[in-house]
């Protein structure tokens, strides 16, 4: 579903990714771990099409297409979803209307009919309950004044509603207490299907206690320095990143 080949990228002339390769098949969950500043978030942002990054080489193919050629919203319309580390506040924009606008934009792009109000309402309420998002928050402005945990739940709610093909979760665990973490992870697990690929970007292993990855990759200094199964995450938890960095440097 997603094939990244030798991807290099820079920010303000500074090279951040130095040749990343990654293959994600439908139904797989990949964890990308790594120390701060290793380029994890950069990779997530480049995949979703955020400004401010210059791709200097390599390619990204998504469902056979050149992903990097697509506009941000075109990627979203084709099923790429980014759950952000710091979800943005939109004052005055109603949370529920925003969600509906998004769904309809994506549906229109796929040539589908717009969602009818009744089934939309039903779905939102049900899914909000699943991620334990207070229904009142649906009526407020998008993320405005939400707590950190509420924002993350709102992200997972959006993901559940938009039903992406490829979901990228950028540090979704940051700033969450254990209950919130469990709720968010449950939400993610509920969305694991044979058709959906997922990339979970995280600094800590603890999220992976709840979301069992198929593969774990360690990104350091802009490269994937080690790939393995979920045991790799446990090893990192026990030994830290230092030994890997040394190995990579050696």
């Amino acid at each position: 579903m997603l094939a990244i080949k030798n991807l290099t990228a820079s920010v303000d002339g500074k090279e951040i990714l130095r040749g990343v390769a990654l293959q994600v098949k439908a139904g797989e969950v990949h964890a990308i771990m790594g120390p701060n500043g290793s380029g994890k978030s950069t990779l997530a942002h480049i995949l979703s099409g955020r400004d401010g990054y210059t791709v200097t080489g390599g390619e990204v193919r998504y469902l056979g297409e050149d992903l990097l050629q697509l506009e941000v919203e075109e990627r979203a319309q084709q099923g790429v979803f980014l759950a952000m580390q710091y979800p943005v506040e939109l004052p005055g924009v109603n949370n529920m209307s925003f969600l509906r606008e998004s769904i309809n934009a994506i549906r229109r792009a796929r040539g589908e009919a717009e969602i009818d109000t009744l089934s939309f309402m039903k779905q939102v309420k049900e899914k909000a309950r699943q991620v334990k998002l207070d229904e009142k928050l649906l009526k407020r402005s998008v993320n405005a004044g939400f707590s950190g945990g509420e924002k993350k739940r709102n992200e997972i709610l959006q993901m559940a509603m938009l039903e992406p093909k490829l979901a990228i979760l950028d540090e979704t665990d940051s700033g969450l207490d254990i209950d919130a973490l469990r709720t968010v992870a449950d939400g993610v697990n509920r969305l694991r299907t044979a058709e959906r690929g997922m990339i979970v970007v995280t600094h800590y292993q603890r999220l992976l206690d709840y979301i069992q990855p198929d593969k774990v990759h360690v990104l350091a200094n802009g490269r994937i320095v080690r790939s393995g199964g979920k045991d790799l995450a446990l090893e990192l938890e026990a030994r830290g990143y230092g030994w890997l960095l040394e190995e990579a440097a050696a």
Binding site: A76, L82, G92, V93, S102, L162
Partner: peptide
């Protein structure tokens, strides 16, 4: 970026933010 990542065009996103304002 947030609005576009959720599938809205830039035009709709600006209009939505301004109407919200």
């Amino acid at each position: 970026f947030y609005c576009r990542q959720r599938g809205l065009t830039e035009e709709d996103a600006v209009s939505m933010i301004i109407n919200g304002f």
